[in-house]
Each structure stands twice: as C-alpha cells, then as structure tokens.
Simulated scan of single mutants.
Amino acid sequence: MLALVLSGLGAGEARADSRCAIDDRDREVCLEAPATRIATLSPGATELVYAAGAGGKVVAVVAYSDYPPEARQVTSVGSHTRVDLEALVSLQPDLVIGWITGNPAEQLETIEALGVPVFYIEPRSIDSVATTIERLARLAGSEAEGNDVAAEFRAGMDALADEYAAAEPVATFYQVWDEPLMSVNDEHLIGEVVRLCGGVNVFGELSRLVPRIDDEAVLAADPEAIVAGGMGEENRHWLTHWQQYPGLTAVARDNLFFVPPSLIQRPTPRLLEGSRILCEKLEVARGRR
C-alpha cells in the first residue's frame, strides 16, 4: 500500500521557479517549485514554518505541535520519535521538515528514498533560529513574511543583549529535566541565552550538550539562581525539590524561577519572549543580594 501511494511522488519537470536552500546537515535541498504541502516532524519545526509565513501549507504535524493555535487543527502523523509513514505519505507532502537529533534517522532516510525531499533542521544558536526561518521561507516561497519575522527576532535579541551587556554575573543552574536530572552546557542554545542575560552557567563547561548531573553536583556548584523548564507548561514542582536544601544560595535568597519551556526550549521566534523572562528573573536575583 505504501509503495502505491508513493508511486507518483517526485515526478515533474524542472521549473524556472525552483527553490534551493542549505539545511543543517550542510546539504543543498532543491525543489522544482515552492513547496505547497509541508510536513513538519517536530513541534519546533511546525512553529518555524508558520513563522516563515507558510503555515497555510502545512498538511501534517506531530504530537505537541500546539503553536500557533491553528496548528492543532492539522492532521497529526504520530510523534517526533515515531512517525506513521503511511499516514504521512498519504497526505502527499512535497517537503518534509526533519529534526536531526529528534526524529529517527532511519525514518527520515526512508522518506527521502521514496522521493520526498527532507530538509533537516537543528537550530543551535540565536542567529540560527533566524536563518532557519529565512531558509524555510525560501523553500516555501514566502520570503517577504519570513524575512520580516527573522529580522524582527534578530533586532529583539540584539536589543536584549545590549540591555544586559554590563549586568553583574549571576551563577545560574538551568534545569532542563528532572528524572534524570539534566542541565545544558554553554554550547546549547539555552546556554547562549543565559550568557546574554548576564548569567554564568554553572555547568557550562561540561562536554555534553545536555549533561546528566545529580543533586550533589548542584550543591557543590551552589548557584545563585535555579531556573526550571521542562516538557509541559506546569513544572513549578521541580523547584520545590530544591527547598530541601536551605543552604543553597538560590534557596536562601528565594531565587527559584520558572520559565515556560515552550518559550525557551523551542528554537523559535518565541525564544525572544522566553529570553526576556529569563533576563528579568536574573535581574530579580541581582536585587536580592
């Protein structure tokens, strides 16, 4: 059945309005014409395509693709960890947006082998969020809107960086998960945001992008501020865990902060809003010295 559905994909002659862009695996992906039926295989990819001005072309998403709200009405074809390939292909996408480290590599390779172009993304810096929007807009033929969104995002992040350029440093622990306990290093996008806000990531020098740690490591680092994120929007209970350690500077000064993870853990334009919140939290910590 799957082969029958795929039999007509990829057909057609080259056209003058072909579009090309370099993806995050450094491959040039070319389309004969701007994409008209896009499948996004992560919540972040969904949000980025909408930001690029191509939301009306999205025909397939995966679980937790909840922003913007209209994305919830698009057909879901599974989760980012396991896509229903037959359901995906039945929607006849002419472009699939894949997540390098989040989607199963074998599934993305199968999609490509069957004739559907895959554009791989993995934004790992503030600027790469903007460039991803621009590249997606190029492939979708929505450059005017996508480039405006990218420029607005860059300007906002630059203004925030200027505002906190001279801020006094705050030793910060960003908790990205609870079981197992996990943080981020300085190479991570969140680590870049912490630096932008004048924070010093207490686990920034660890080699892993998302290192596993334990309570003892946090106690030894003694951060001045603890910031929690997570998968959902209500993880404040993660912060109550640290109250059992009244000797921690962050606990003693009540510098236990929550930032909605969808605003800071997805590499999308809403990172600007999440960064503003994080910067404000660290400014609160400075005022409690």
Rank of each mutant, 00 (worst) to 15 (best):
R124W: 07
A137T: 05
V74N: 03
Y64L: 08
A137M: 03
L278V: 09
V176L: 14
A51I: 02
P261G: 07
Y245M: 04
R253V: 04
H237N: 11
R236D: 08
D214C: 05
L181K: 02
P169Q: 08
R288T: 11
W99Y: 14
A252D: 13
E145T: 15
A144R: 15
A252R: 14
E187L: 12
D162S: 15
G98M: 00
F153I: 09
A166L: 07
E224T: 13
P246T: 10
A250G: 03
D17W: 08
R288L: 15
E47S: 01
L160W: 13
V184G: 11
G55W: 13
A54Q: 03
V58F: 09
G230Y: 01
G232R: 12
V116E: 12
L48N: 09
Q107H: 05
C279K: 10
A171D: 15
E273F: 03
V89Y: 05
A151P: 05
R276W: 06
A11I: 03
G247A: 12
Q243R: 15
G230P: 07
V116G: 05
V251K: 08
L219I: 15
V49N: 07
G78S: 04
S207T: 13
A140L: 10
P223Y: 02
L272I: 09
C279N: 07
P267G: 14
M231V: 12
L282P: 08
I213P: 03
L248V: 10
R135S: 15
P104L: 03
F258G: 09
P246E: 08
L278A: 12
D24F: 14
A228L: 13
Q175A: 12
A63Y: 00
V29Q: 00
T36R: 14
P43D: 08
N185S: 03
G102H: 04
A151G: 05
Q73G: 00
L114C: 00
F173H: 03
Q244D: 13
Y64R: 10
A39T: 01
L31Y: 06
